[in-house]
Design a protein around this nucleic acid. Structure first.
Lengths: 149, 149
DNA sequence: GTGCAAGCTGAAGCGGACTTCAGCTCAAGG
DNA sequence: CCTTGAGCTGAAGTCCGCTTCAGCTTGCAC
């Protein structure tokens, strides 16, 4: 255990992620473990970094599925390098910027609405589905969060 | 139907919210409807504004339960005024600012990490659970999203 | 060698925000 | 009238990210 590999409990403690979550991540293919003779998981130290990346990505708003795809794009067998992590991180930056921009717009519109108090479906920028323009098709609808398509 | 009241389908079309969602909101006590002789819902036009407020609030990240409490704090029987909406909106602004601040910090840290490429559990600001300081109690853990604790 | 914490598995549960379904009733136009 | 689309209900299903549970095995310390 002062060995290179970590038990699931050790990884859990050091990463702050519950063992059940780690098993779950493994089922989804986000992390990997080798097994001992007695079928217990042993993690390489590099997995610690993977787990870190997973948790950070979640805070950015990335789903585990999307994360799986991103991680799968890493060169198969090698332990991810600094450069690998940096590339992935850079990918999330764009999302973060979109999200921030979305929230700022929402805040500013909301601030405007505090002034006007309207929440009017006819006029308010915050909420503008097709009210007078009620053609059947898709019209302007809700202000969508980034990525809501 | 050119009457003051709206059927559920009309409210759905004009608000961009599915009838099933409107019924769900009603069960949670977020909106109200009167019933016709034949037990169908009829909505006052003011409900349109309520629904707008609900959807906007959700984008701010407010849960329906919290929203229910907020709406319950409105003077019982009167149709909410401009001022009522403004007060509620102002309440969300703080949350929005927290969220924005959180994401900005995350982005900036991430940007820093792109430079250093570390994701090191020992050093990285992004992810700093108790690794060397592994006392049993609560230590610095994940950067938590606002309101996560 | 024995006791006990830690690990294993698959299945089920949870919470939030809805949607879908089955089976039935209502309302409005022709 | 009659048809057809809109509405009604309660129950169950869905998706996501886990946690919990039951029942069993491992592994380490004494």
């Amino acid at each position: 255990m002062t060995d290179t590999s970590l038990t699931i409990g050790e990884l859990a403690r050091r990463s702050g992620v519950a063992p059940s979550a780690l098993r779950y991540y493994e089922r989804l293919g986000l992390i990997r473990a080798v097994r001992t003779g007695g079928n217990q998981r042993r993690y390489q130290r590099a997995e610690l970094r993977r787990v870190a990346f997973i948790r950070i990505s979640q805070q950015v708003g990335v789903s585990l599925e999307e994360l799986r795809e991103a991680l799968a794009s890493l060169p198969e067998s090698r332990t991810p390098t600094k450069a690998d992590w940096a590339a992935l991180s850079a990918r999330w930056r764009g999302r973060l910027n979109d999200q921030i921009a979305f929230l700022e717009r929402l805040r500013d519109d909301l601030t405007g609405c505090i002034g006007c108090g309207c929440l009017s479906l006819q006029r308010c920028r915050l909420y503008n589905p097709d009210d007078e323009l009620s053609a059947d098709g898709a019209g302007p609808r809700l202000l969508l969060p980034p990525g809501a398509s």
